Amino acid sequence: MSNSPTAELSAAGVSIWLDDLSRERIASGGLEKLIAERNVVGVTTNPTIFAGALAKGEAYDEQVAVLAAANTSVTDAVFEITTDDVAAASDIFRPIYDATGGFDGRVSIEVEPGFAHDAAATIQQAQQLWTKVDRPNALIKIPATLEGLEAITETIAAGISVNVTLIFSLERYRAVIDAYLTGLEKAKANGHDLSTLHSVASFFVSRVDTEIDKRLDAIGSDEALALKGKAGVANAQLAYEVFTEAFATERAATLLAGGANKQRPLWASTGVKDPAVLDTTYVVELVAADVVNTMPEKTLEATFDHGVIAGDSITPSYAAARETIAALATVGVDVDDVTALLEKEGVEKFIVSWNELLDTVTAALQAAK
Rank of each mutant, 00 (worst) to 15 (best):
T324E: 08
H306R: 15
K298G: 08
S108I: 05
T330G: 03
V233Q: 02
A59T: 09
D222R: 10
A65W: 00
S313D: 07
A326W: 06
L328I: 05
N261Y: 06
A51C: 01
K132V: 09
A320F: 10
F79M: 12
L34F: 03
I26T: 02
L286H: 07
T315L: 08
V333N: 03
H192N: 13
D84F: 08
G232I: 07
N39V: 00
G346Y: 10
S2P: 04
L139R: 15
K349A: 15
V284Y: 11
L67Q: 04
A27L: 14
K214Q: 06
V74E: 07
V41W: 03
G232H: 05
S108E: 06
A69M: 01
V64C: 04
A120N: 14
R38N: 12
E323L: 09
W354A: 09
G271S: 11
V64K: 03
N39L: 01
E110M: 09
V308H: 03
E343V: 07
L341V: 00
L194N: 11
D359W: 01
D213F: 02
R25H: 06
L139E: 09
E356A: 13
L328T: 03
A88W: 03
V74Q: 07
Y282W: 13
G183A: 07
S199E: 09
A77D: 07
A367W: 12
L149N: 04
P143D: 08
V283L: 12
M1Y: 10
D337M: 03
L266Q: 05
N3V: 13
L227M: 07
A248S: 15
E285P: 05
A218M: 01
V208E: 00
V331N: 06
G220K: 04
T48G: 00
H306V: 01
V43M: 05
V200P: 03
G346I: 13
V277G: 01
E285D: 15
A36T: 13
G191I: 06
E112G: 13
R25P: 00
A138Q: 14
F350H: 11
R23F: 01
I212C: 00
L9A: 12
Y318K: 11
V14I: 11
V233I: 15
F203Y: 11
D85A: 02
A138L: 11
A239K: 08
A253V: 01
L9T: 11
D305F: 00
G57A: 10
I123K: 08
A253S: 15
D193Y: 13
A364G: 07
A319P: 02
K273A: 12
D274W: 11
K186R: 15
D312T: 08
L197M: 09
V86E: 10
K230A: 08
T182W: 03
Q366V: 15
A68Q: 03
D359T: 08
T362I: 08
P5Y: 14
A119M: 10
G52S: 06
V347K: 10
A65E: 13
N293D: 09
V86P: 04
T131C: 01
K188H: 14
A51H: 05
N163D: 13
L278M: 05
K344R: 14
G311R: 12
E356C: 00
Y180C: 02
F204E: 03
E147K: 14
N261I: 04
W130H: 15
S353T: 05
R135E: 11
Q128S: 14
E58H: 12
T182R: 15
V162I: 12
Y60L: 08
W267H: 06
K141H: 07
S317M: 15
Q63W: 00
